[in-house]
Simulated scan of single mutants.
Amino acid sequence: MKNYYFDHCASTPPYEQVIQTVSELMGLHYANSTALHRSGQEAAKLVERARASAAQSLGAKPEEVLFTSGGTESNNLALKGILFSGGRKAPRHLITTSIEHSSVYNTAKQLERFGIEVTFLPVDRTGRVSVADVEAAIRPNTQLVSVMHVNNETGVIQPIEEIAELLSGYPQIRFHVDGVQAVGKVPLKWGAKGIDLYSGSAHKFRGPKGVGFLLKREGIELEPLQEGGGQEDGFRGGTHNLPGIVGMSQALRLTMESMAGRRERMFALRRQLIEQTRSIPELLLNVPEEERLVSPQVVNLSYPGMRPEVLVHMLEGNGVFLSTQSACSSKSLKPSRVLLAMGMDADRASGSLRISFGDEHEAEDVDELVRRLKATVAKLKPLERSR
Rank of each mutant, 00 (worst) to 15 (best):
M1V: 07
K2H: 14
Y4W: 15
C9Q: 02
T12P: 07
V18G: 14
V22K: 08
H29I: 10
Y30D: 02
A31L: 03
A31M: 03
A31P: 03
N32F: 13
H37W: 05
S39D: 15
Q41F: 02
E42N: 10
A44H: 13
E48G: 03
R51P: 13
A52P: 01
A60S: 13
A60Q: 07
E64H: 02
S69M: 09
G71N: 08
T72R: 06
N75G: 11
G86V: 10
I95F: 02
S98C: 02
S102Y: 02
V104Q: 00
V104C: 04
V104I: 10
T107F: 02
K109Y: 00
Q110G: 01
R113C: 00
I116Y: 00
E117L: 07
E117Y: 05
F120A: 03
R128I: 01
V131Y: 05
A137M: 01
I138S: 01
H149I: 07
N151W: 03
N152S: 14
Q158E: 06
E161N: 11
E165G: 08
Y170P: 02
Q172W: 03
Q172R: 09
I173N: 01
R174M: 03
R174H: 06
A182C: 14
W190D: 11
A192E: 07
K193I: 08
I195T: 11
I195Q: 07
S199G: 11
S199V: 07
K204Y: 09
P208M: 06
G229H: 12
E232G: 11
G234D: 06
F235M: 09
G244Y: 13
G244V: 08
G247L: 10
M248S: 09
S249N: 13
L254W: 09
M256D: 01
S258H: 13
M266D: 14
F267V: 06
L269Y: 11
R278D: 14
P288C: 06
N300H: 14
L301D: 11
E309I: 01
H313S: 01
G319S: 06
S329H: 07
R337E: 00
L339E: 00
M344S: 12
L369I: 09
V377I: 15
A378H: 06
A378S: 15
K379D: 01
P382S: 01
